[in-house]
Amino acid sequence: PEVTNDASRAERPPMQQYIRHLLYTSLCKTNTERILRQIRKLHWEDREISLYAVKCLTSVWNAKFYNIRCIANLLAGLIAHYDWVGTAVVDGTLEDIRFGMETNEPKFNQRRVAAIKYLGELYNYRVIESSVIFKILYSLITFGVSWDPGNPSTYDAPDHHMRLRLVCTLLDTCGQFFSSGASKRRLDCYLTYFQHYFWFKKSVYSEEEFPWQVDHLVQDTIVGVRPKITMFKSLEESQNAVTALNKQIVDKAIQNMPSLKQYFGNTDEENEEKALPTIPEGDDHIE
């Protein structure tokens, strides 16, 4: 027995209508401070109101796409007064992104793009750190992904391009800030894996049949975050790059912690010599 949207809309109490009005109708670039003051005045100690406000701050697909950044900006301001709201909204947004990957129904596509856009904006407004962004970037090209064309995945069917669109939306939103230090190196690594994922998607199609819009979207996004990049030109080329990168990462891990060697089988003999304990770089947090 499901309540239809229309029925619940008609029954919405005034306080809920007010919160929705503030966030989804009034809020824009020029009045964020004023709307934030209104939002702060809500009775946050009332569980029903605070639950609803958190829900609205999470459900950004109800806002205009362009205004998603304003909600992120507002949330960043709200955290100074209500720290726990930030945690609840970020947790909720990540749950929604995960939910989208698990259900993979076209009717949720717009919601999924909005949620991923929001995540990028939450990074831009310093609500979350880059490590969260990278977790999501990697999950988008791994969660339920099948690399075996004979055994396709329902989470990410061979002819679905939603994951590509989501990665591009996220990188378009905040990727330009991963330009120095550890986050730059992390993005460089990611782009190698991402291009491999992209070429694998493309390889399912015969030549010229892959939608050119998706092709352009991915190329524009990668060039947008790395203008000087030389992109891989085939599945094989990207596969080789991934193999080389994997080896590099394993070698470095073993170098830092020789006891890991047992888990990786036969690596090159020369690593034996390099396997002296080294001082951890500890530069993961320089950003």
Binding site: R37, R40, K41, W44, E45, H81, Y82, D83, W84, G86, T87, V90, D91, L94, R98, I128, V132, K135, I136
Partner: peptide
Amino acid sequence: YAPFQKIPKSNHNKKDIR
């Protein structure tokens, strides 16, 4: 594991001086 590991510093019901 929650993908976002942060927890709030303050209590839920701390009053905002508005």
